[in-house]
Design a protein around this nucleic acid. Structure first.
Length: 490
RNA sequence: GGCGCUAUCGUCUAGGGGACUAGGACGGGGCCCUCUCAAGGCCCAAACACGGGUUCGAAUCCCGUUAGCGCUACCA
């Protein structure tokens, strides 16, 4: 009955309030709105709901922009600031007063609080008793003349309010369970439900997609649309995102701000892919998707009703997948700032040997789950001197004399290698191991420590190739020297 | 308390009356590959919340119970 007709171009919006950072739940809501708009060739708008002046900050607004930009969720048209539409909200409230869909209420917050407490004791749901709606015109005028402050309340009509939700299908509320809610504060500023409806009408929004914590606001908003004589949008209520304990996702579950993931070396495409699967499935076994694929596959049919739990382990795995599948040319600009920030190199140095750098990234990304992992692994290929991980020393240089002997032999073998190529390096090192009658690992592992300082690295020949002859030979010399010095010191 | 929403492995999910011995993925365990670690491949453990219906037949449709979650402001 209120499905979007295919002929109509969908217009959706993401409407966060700037009272904190962009939360992963908000990002997921934004993503679904964006995917729907992209898939069905519609518009995706952004509205900042800053009517609560006490809690809204510019810093939060900036964080929302940054988060959305990082994720690549670009919006159409200019950002709408709800606070700029105060006059229209007020006018709409007045209009409802004139058509007597709403009425003035002179009850003070203190009186209301008192009555609420009384009903709490009696274990009854508190509902405004409409006493001000029963004021005679003369009484109302008298209090107005006296300058008594008042709020504007919407009068809930008789009956039932229902809608056909895009994800839940039919949802209905008996109107008797709805309270005559305030739409205009005593300082003449609008309350959420009024502002939202007024703005959504003005912006021509025809699909309202938001978290299902808004389900109970929906009947009130529908009543407002009707009283304002506006056409109803379609509503879609998305499931919530919870932490591993099943409770609403919050700070104590770890990182909940999109910015945290950005700074910990996540790829936006992985974040989007992961978030998309929280509450939506393309059907079948499909999981890993690029952004264009998500747009292509997105359909409201795959929307889930059940709350999803945010599992950081799966996000990490997914990031690893995206790290491996993202084209190098796209990956490089996301990794380079981190490399530079870590002090490993600068732009000029990287540009000077871009081919080498890209190959190195390609080598390291296989065993990385985050950009930070890549940076951590990259050190030995940039630094002049390295530190030796005590664990690596204990494990692979256990016997110092043997380590020195094997490293020196390795050094000689490498120096006499003709072409510095994988094949010749492999031949040289394997025959060295053979001539000494030891397993190849007995040569490779001590060498790995000498080159990287670690027990773990890409394949030894790849490391040798990435470091080049000069640095490799220097590393071996440094290592033997370090081992000797260590002995002398004792 | 009232109202609403939800219910498939620990987690994300596939499934939409017979194709179900319930599939995939993360995580866990094991094996293979192997110069280490990843990646990759193979294998294992692991779920239809419960009770009633409807039907020849229910994970799937209906009702109830239970549990979880959300809302219940002159917050958004």
């Amino acid at each position: 009955m209120n499905e979007l007709s295919p002929a109509k171009r969908p217009r959706l919006r993401f409407a966060p309030s700037p009272t904190g950072y962009l939360h992963v739940g908000g990002a997921r809501t934004a993503l679904f709105n964006w995917l729907y708009a992209k898939h069905f060739n519609g518009d995706f708008l952004l509205r900042i709901e800053d009517t609560d002046k006490a809690r809204s900050t510019d810093e939060s607004t900036r964080a929302i922009f940054e988060g959305l930009e990082w994720l690549g969720l670009d919006w159409d048209e200019d950002v709408v600031y709800q606070g700029a539409n105060l006059e229209r909200h007020r006018a709409d409230a007045l209009k409802l007063l004139e058509t007597s869909a709403a009425y003035r209420c002179f009850c003070t917050p203190e009186e209301l609080e008192e009555r609420r407490r009384a009903s709490a004791i009696g274990k009854e749901a508190f509902k405004y008793d409409r006493r001000c709606d029963r004021l005679t015109p003369a009484e109302t005028q008298q209090r107005l003349d006296r300058g008594d402050p008042f709020v504007v309340r919407f009068r809930i009509p008789e009956g039932e309010t229902e809608w056909n939700d895009l994800v839940h299908e039919r949802i209905a509320f008996p109107n008797k369970d709805l309270d005559d809610f305030v739409i205009l504060r005593s300082n003449a500023t609008p309350i959420y439900n009024l502002a939202v409806v007024s703005d959504d009408i003005a912006m021509g929004i025809n699909l309202v997609m938001r978290g299902d914590d808004h389900i109970s606001n929906t009947p009130k908003q529908i009543l407002l649309y009707r009283a304002l004589g506006a056409e109803l949008p379609t509503f879609a209520h998305l499931p919530m995102i919870h932490g591993m304990d099943g409770k609403k996702l919050s700070k104590r579950h770890g990182a909940t701000a999109v910015g945290d993931y950005q700074h910990h070396g996540l790829l936006p495409s992985a974040m989007l892919n992961f978030l998309a699967l929280l509450g939506w499935s393309p059907g079948g076994d499909r999981e890993i998707m690029t952004v264009p694929e998500m747009i292509e596959l997105f359909s409201p049919d795959g929307l889930q009703k059940k709350a999803a739990i945010f599992d950081p382990k799966k996000l990490e795995w997914m990031n690893g997948q995206h790290l491996s599948m993202t084209p190098l040319a796209e990956l490089e600009p996301r990794v380079t700032p981190a490399i530079i920030a870590a002090g490993l190199a600068d732009h000029t140095a990287l540009d000077a040997r871009r081919e080498w750098y890209l190959e190195l990234l390609d080598l390291l990304r296989v065993r990385a789950r985050t950009i930070d992992d890549i940076v951590r692994q990259a050190g030995p290929y940039f630094l002049q001197t390295i530190e030796y991980d005590p664990e690596a020393v204990a494990k692979n240089w256990k016997n110092r004399d043997e380590a020195i002997v094997i490293l020196e032999a390795t050094g000689h073998a490498l120096e006499s290698v003709g072409e510095w190529q994988t094949e010749s390096l492999e031949t040289a090192l394997r025959s060295l191991a053979e001539s000494r009658g030891v397993a190849a690992g007995k040569v490779f592992q001590p060498l790995r420590v000498a080159l990287t300082g670690l027990t773990v690295s890409p394949g030894i020949f790849e490391v040798l190739m990435a470091m080049g002859r000069e640095l490799s030979v220097k590393r071996i010399a440094d290592a033997t020297q370090w081992l000797r010095k260590d002995i002398v010191d004792e």
